[in-house]
Design a protein around this nucleic acid. Structure first.
Lengths: 355, 355
DNA sequence: TTGAAAGCGCTACCAG
DNA sequence: CTGGTAGCGCTTTCAA
């Protein structure tokens, strides 16, 4: 094998300077077609595949990949249906320009800053991160375009999200209109710690996941507006998986008197709630109503089909991707755009008046 | 803002050399705790987040991300359930070591080599690529560890796959045992071009997607073994989506006499076949039997539940991830490992004896 | 149209 | 324990 093949190798072989070989790749117009052909031929012969991208990036500052930052372990990106759908949309959004996407996981306990900087992305999408997360601070300090999706708010960067508050209101109004008075809420994690269980007012006030804070706020507004005392509403906090959702729902269901409706703040959790009801022999929606949030594909095929707040997840991803592309060419001092996508209540078979 | 902050900036501020600041980050043991603290303090004050990863990589040759190469557009990675599950497993497999994963799309017409080299991954997983694909050649020329999943075979690198031939045999034996004699086959693309439609012997012989070649080979073996003439078996080739599967199945179903069974070579296609039967008013499995391959989650919940060849997709991903990690530390001259995972026929409700 | 020279920011080696 | 020196492979003025 011998030495590594570099620009210099080819330059020596052809008898020109390094710069000329570089031009052969980057500015074909600057040299004669004949010379360029000779250079390319020599490159092929030496097995030289073109300028080293790392070195090029060091010089130019750009490398052609965009990143997406999560607060969960890497496999979460492929396990959570909402996340997968978002990423599909995001990929479609950035597709015109880039074919490389780097997923950056920033789970608790990782070397977050190193990972982010090591990804060396030209632009990054912050996907649903808690406030005050080291990763967000790192990205914001990176001097690359950033688009924030869902959370956190107030970074002064481009933002794409949905109207979470409104979603909460819609669910609350729907349930109140059906006549429910005893309601339990199943929320995804409110902070980046690993606490689960019942949620008190203090915990709620200190919630750093904007999304759920707002959904709960909207719900509260609608419920109190309908004359239901917020103090009577029990909250359970769980990790966003079906299994944990089932556990949380079971806890809610064990209260006396039993709630007649469970508001899950994600569809994953709602699916778990459905399973918990089944396990407890409770009919949905006969004895317990269940609502979700997001409208993932599984919500439609659930038994019974889930009443849920639909958000345009794929579209949100595409918007985010396009926003990132826009930020990449834009003047750095342009005011960042904020996109808030609408939500919609989809009433299916999991809600009914209380018996 | 002024100048960019580099190692040198900090070195000047503290009054030490660049090398010492570098050591403060990379080899804390090599300098006094007191000096290191002073350096870190100065860095914090100047807003220096640590050594530039690109420059570091240029020097060290490693950057801490692993790549996965596909032959489809980027959003495919998140649209195909099998691919998503594979990636979930892969992520789990590499998780102990890396938190960054770069997805490299090499769809037809893209600047494949540039994209791959630009990803600058420390190791790459080639995921189900056709033989003779420019991307594969590029990766193989990259001087980084490689693991090939599913396809292509014979690269001389680590390989993880399943027993595709055996899967084909299982389906063929099952259908023959049920008494089917008129069988149609719905295959995913056999080559990387965009041709779809009926597949003749010549096309089949030139199939460059090993996976489907083998599945068909196994099927053929079982069928001819049961006395069914291969010449009577019609094949339709489509892109691997539910919609295209439906179109292909419709074509198969329009033959006279109508086949009594459709063998789809992926679950996606099988789901499409189910839809086509429904649209044609054909009862499954009463009038037509349908089989799939892969056993994605939707196969279980399909109507009727799909008889299919289950492959351990998640496990395959995890194995691939672990193989990549192993290759990263291994001596370069160790013989590459080949892992072939078993498949299993799962009989559900979509197959029955012909009427 | 071509080439010489000057770095991009960093780390490895070796001498002090 | 510390620092000087020599590049990693490339692009980009600027001058010829």
């Amino acid at each position: 094998m011998g030495q590594r093949v570099t620009l210099q190798t080819i330059a020596d072989a052809v008898g020109v300077s390094r710069a000329t070989v570089s031009n052969a790749y980057n500015r074909p117009g600057r040299l004669s077609a004949e010379l360029r052909a000779r250079i390319l031929a020599a490159a092929a012969e030496h097995g030289y595949a073109g300028p080293d991208p790392v070195a090029r990036r060091l010089r130019t500052g750009r490398g052609g990949t965009v990143g997406v930052l999560f607060t969960e372990p890497l496999d979460y990106a492929f396990s959570d249906p909402g996340c997968v759908e978002f990423l599909a949309g995001f990929s479609a959004g950035v597709r015109p320009v880039t074919t490389n996407l780097v997923l950056i996981a920033a789970p608790p306990g990782a070397q977050v800053a190193d990972a982010i900087r090591g990804a060396a992305a030209d632009a990054v999408c912050v996907y649903s991160m808690p406030e005050h997360h080291e990763g967000v601070a790192t990205v914001l300090g990176l001097a690359v375009p950033v688009v924030v999706v869902d959370m956190p708010a107030g970074t002064g960067r481009a933002f794409v999200g949905i109207d979470d508050h409104r979603g909460g209101v819609l669910v609350g109004e729907h349930l109140a209109a059906l006549g429910h008075r005893r309601i339990g809420v199943l929320t995804s994690r409110l902070r980046a710690d690993d606490r689960v269980g019942a949620v008190g007012p203090d915990r709620l006030a200190r919630a750093s996941f904007r999304l759920f804070r707002e959904r709960i706020g909207g719900l509260r507004e609608a419920l109190t507006g309908a004359g239901i005392a917020w103090a009577d509403v029990a909250l359970q906090e769980r990790r966003n998986t079906t299994a944990e959702g089932a556990a949380g729902a079971a806890a809610l269901l064990s209260a006396q008197p039993r709630p007649t409706a469970i508001v899950a703040l994600t569809d994953q959790l709602a699916l778990g709630a459905l399973a918990a009801c089944r396990a407890a022999g409770l009919d949905v929606p006969g004895q317990v109503s269940v609502t979700g949030f997001d409208d993932i594909a599984a919500a439609r095929t659930a038994q019974p089909p889930l009443t849920t707040v639909a958000q345009p997840t794929y579209l949100k991803g595409r918007e985010a991707g396009q926003a990132l592309l826009a930020a990449l060419d834009a003047e750095p001092d342009l005011p960042p755009a904020t996109t808030v996508l609408p939500v919609e209540l989809v009433v299916r078979g999991s809600t009914a008046p209380p018996s």
